[in-house]
Design a protein around this nucleic acid. Structure first.
Lengths: 196, 196
DNA sequence: GTACCAATAAACAACATGTTGAAAATTCAG
DNA sequence: CTGAATTTTCAACATGTTGTTTATTGGTAC
């Protein structure tokens, strides 16, 4: 019995892997089931035993990715004792996020590019927002001080963050996650201090 | 002769219009040429007299949109005499952008959604960045004060801006462009003043 | 009237899709 | 070890989409 489960899992994994491999060089829209099964060296019909269609395939990969990234963030965050100054906590959260992004950069780069699927950046940002919201709301009185609707502030700050990540990718990951954190802090400081 | 040009132009416009109409309810990926020509009530072959394929169709609409938006921004900006304080200029630019966005919101909402095409938000942001860059560099000494690479700062701030726009759309355009400008100013002020 | 042009209609091969029934591989009871 | 049951894989099929082509229609230009 168990060898079937294992085999099934392996085939499914093979399909996902082959698909991601093709996605590096070809837009999602123009990839066919045949392309995938040819690389995976399986029958085209086998594909349909594991996925409804290619949209389902991407959905499942996307869902896995969000789960993995979420878990990573939670793990890295939990290792941090919450007795630091608020600025330090912000810096730590930023560093956590950049680290996790770096870890998953191969897939994220593709998904955020024009080879990926429309709307990914919004779904990704929403997942991001949730983590940031939790962190911000630990700061008591935050909502009182903020005069604009929270959803707008979250969209603003998480999009800005995502913008840095996209630029980081566009520059071919030219910096470490530590350097990206510093860069982020520098930008916030610049906005706070200077006229621009 | 001129009536031929006119007829040709009208048919091309009809195709674009019909396509956008379908795009409101269906993802770009799953729209067929047949869908479009059925709505436009023309022969399927006629489509190919005007466009290479559906990707070409979207490319042309996207290009037109960027040109139109760019022209609108330039026009609104040029009406403003540049003798104001720097903060006022920033506010004016923001207001200009929100106004133009509002004007083109029907198409932009679709293009930024998951019905659109992957990578649109990056191409849109790049076009945006150019306008913001020109405005920022009017402030002499800006580059000297900024310690981080300009491209990162631009990505940061234009993505943040785009984030507000996306949230605005998501809330069903619940505010006027004036209110959005105020909201933007409030967020910048909040970041400057408060710990968060 | 003749040359010209946009749009149409119909047909085509090539390819992609999703389904199905048969075949091969694997497990396990006796 | 063997045969029945179960699971995975596959080849073939019907259907739909794509982009191209050829002949034809209804106008316009000169």
């Amino acid at each position: 019995m168990s060898i079937y489960i294992e085999k099934n899992r392996k085939t499914k994994e093979l399909i996902q892997k082959s698909f991601l491999q093709i996605l590096e060089n070809k837009r999602f829209e123009s990839i066919t089931i045949g392309d995938i099964t040819k690389i995976a060296q399986i029958n085209r019909g086998t594909f349909y035993l594991h996925f409804i269609d290619k949209f389902d395939l991407l959905d499942q990969i996307e869902q896995q990715l969000f789960t993995e990234i979420g878990n990573h963030i939670d793990e890295l965050q939990s290792r941090y004792s919450f007795t630091h100054a608020f600025e330090k906590e912000q810096e730590h959260l930023a560093n956590t996020l950049f680290s996790v992004i770096e870890l998953h950069s191969p897939i994220l780069q593709i998904f955020l590019s024009d080879h990926g699927r429309a709307g990914f950046h919004i779904r990704f940002r929403d997942a991001f927002s949730e983590k940031v919201r939790i962190n911000l709301e630990k700061n008591e009185g935050f909502n009182a001080k903020l005069k604009v609707p929270l959803e707008y502030f979250l969209s603003f700050i998480t999009s800005a963050f995502l913008g840095l990540i996209e630029q980081w990718f566009q520059n071919g990951l030219d910096k470490t996650s530590q350097e990206m954190t510093s860069l982020y802090i520098d930008i916030i400081s610049f906005i706070k201090r200077d006229k621009w």
